[in-house]
Amino acid sequence: MAVKIEKRSGCVIATLDGDIDHHTAKNIRESIDSEVEKTKPKILKLDFNKVNFMDSSGIGLIMGRYKLMKLLNGDLELINVSQRIGKIMRLSGIYKLKKY
């Protein structure tokens, strides 16, 4: 799993590449949070285009970043969610937090 972090006009974009599970979530979380706490962006975007696999640890990761962005009065956006991981996203009810 690799995480690429970019900054673009008030936005932090994290591009996730590989599998998201409990093992990889820790590193992803730390990379994202250190950038978000430093730049305090208006929007955090998580890009799932290159994610092959995700279990409920990924849902925990998303919920945690959602709460963090709310604390900063910002917003979280999920982009490029594939069919494959869309199923667990729907089951989690995460789309009810916000319409994507």
């Binding site: 979380r29 409920s56 990761l61 089951l91 989690s92």
Partner: peptide
């Protein structure tokens, strides 16, 4: 705690 979604069993049940 914080970083667990509490959805593991729900996933196993539905998948």
């Amino acid at each position: 705690g914080e970083e667990r979604a509490g959805l593991g069993f729900a996933v196993m049940q539905s998948f």
